[in-house]
């Protein structure tokens, strides 16, 4: 097992560590679909801004490259 694999294994094992800690026995939502929706929207809301920022940044990067190629040393 390479060192990279070992690091990944430790990281993944870390994900399971806090699993036993549940604070409130009565206050999570009743349905599995609702919990799933929370996770789904969490992923959606987190990825969306990063995608938008990333694509604008990429567009700007392309524009800079374009301008450097066309500008005669100005």
């Amino acid at each position: 097992m390479s060192r990279v694999h070992a690091v990944w294994a430790v990281a993944l094992a870390g994900l399971t560590l806090p699993g036993v800690a549940e604070a409130c026995a009565v206050c999570f939502s009743a349905t599995e679909s609702n919990r799933g929706a929370f996770i789904g929207t969490t992923v959606f809301l987190t990825i969306l801004p990063l995608l938008m920022i990333g694509s604008v940044a990429f567009y700007v990067y392309r524009r800079v490259k374009e301008m450097e190629a066309t500008e005669p040393g100005a």
């Binding site: 939502s29 009743a30 349905t31 679909s33 609702n34 799933g36 929706a37 929370f38 789904g40 929207t41 959606f44 809301l45 969306l48």
Partner: peptide, 13 residues
Amino acid sequence: AGLISAYAVVRAG
């Protein structure tokens, strides 16, 4: 995105 997420959560609940 916030509005749609809120909608999805309440609908799923």
